[in-house]
Design a protein around this nucleic acid. Sequence first.
DNA 1: TTGTATTTTTTTTAATACAATTATATAGTA
DNA 2: TACTATATAATTGTATTAAAAAAAATACAA
Lengths: 228, 228
Amino acid sequence: MSMMKDDEYLPLRDVVFNTLRQEILTGKLKPGERLMEIHLANKLGVSRTPIREAIRKLELEGLVIMIPRRGAEVAQITLKSLQDVMEVRRALDVLAIELACERMEQEDLDSLYQACENFKAAVKTKDTRMLAEADVAFHDKIVLSTGNTRLIQLVSNLSEQMYRYRFEYLKDASSHEMLQQEHLEMYQSILKKDKITAADVVRKHINNQEEAIIKQLQLEKDDRRKNV
Amino acid sequence: MSMMKDDEYLPLRDVVFNTLRQEILTGKLKPGERLMEIHLANKLGVSRTPIREAIRKLELEGLVIMIPRRGAEVAQITLKSLQDVMEVRRALDVLAIELACERMEQEDLDSLYQACENFKAAVKTKDTRMLAEADVAFHDKIVLSTGNTRLIQLVSNLSEQMYRYRFEYLKDASSHEMLQQEHLEMYQSILKKDKITAADVVRKHINNQEEAIIKQLQLEKDDRRKNV
DNA sequence: TTGTATTTTTTTTAATACAATTATATAGTA
DNA sequence: TACTATATAATTGTATTAAAAAAAATACAA
């Protein structure tokens, strides 16, 4: 009698997909690094088939670049690609918060306030990982409240991709206070159903992040120049 | 048949991907229809491997729903899914035209005007296929002029998905004049670099389309009720 | 007839085998 | 040395095979 918790079955291709995705987002797999099938298959203890299927999905997500008959490699992080992502994210986050102003129920609002508080607590701990999670949780609540499946999917995708850049940036403690303040402003404007202010805050929020990340990228570049 | 230039080599998986995608978008493959590997492999004269890889990509695009160990089927068209897509598209098309106002060069503007004229010509022919192509061409020019790779990818994806709904709707000749008029207004506002008007026209454009498509969906529903 | 086991078939999943292509190393030549 | 040609190895692309699971068909009992 197998005590079946078999509900949690995930095809190997999806396990591989999630694994590779995570490694790319956190930087374990570096930009430009080649994804060789046999190599990955051995490393993960599976055959090439699920590896290939996972790579197809990563390709469509833009995390991986395919060159026919040469294979896949981790997409580069460039200033341009960052700006492209941010431009789109800004538009979608503005849409999300505008819809949230229309559609959030009292229950959602309470839960959003709680997320604000959680972020505040995370700032105090200075644990980057917790901070990142609290930040994601806050933004997720807004996007989820729109009820728009497509939007939810796209934003979660884009914002996860940003972690390729953002994770480093969150280590800079000087910005934490500001993030916290902006979260509160977002909450308040949604509470007042004030779309215009809400949109402004979001834009400011994204702009700040973009700026901070660009600074980070610049630093890395300088480092490379010095150290190599 | 190897009459294709070696430069234009496309892996079978991509050929299959494009083929299936097109069949879903045009409705040859109907919502809910199962995509069975051996069947498709025989039909397209390839092995199952490229079929599977193509299905993974369609899955990520949202055109196909995967049920583990049961297989893939064509995603359903519902009023909700249409509204979700349109909500996102509206935001991204507004972004695109705003960026176009900033970034279009004289050359691009001329080419956009040409696209307007082409659409006008297509309206006269009353050939739905030509009309659809001319419409896509016009919108593509705007999006491409932004130079934002990510945006280009997302919009092309979303707008193609709309063809699942829109193709039928374009058969309704009564809307053609209006579409043509709206294209011209877009061109003119980009020419004047008038973001606000441009954004308004785009919103109106999308709203009109959404409305028309909803009407179509409603009709189909009524038809089914009567005929079955 | 209805409901439940049991077997068979179909289908997906995963691994493996083979072919085609590209990258790399080596040897020969000017 | 620099360059080309050729052989060799590594890697991707495609097909096939084998295993696992689900669906369908069948048989049997109430």
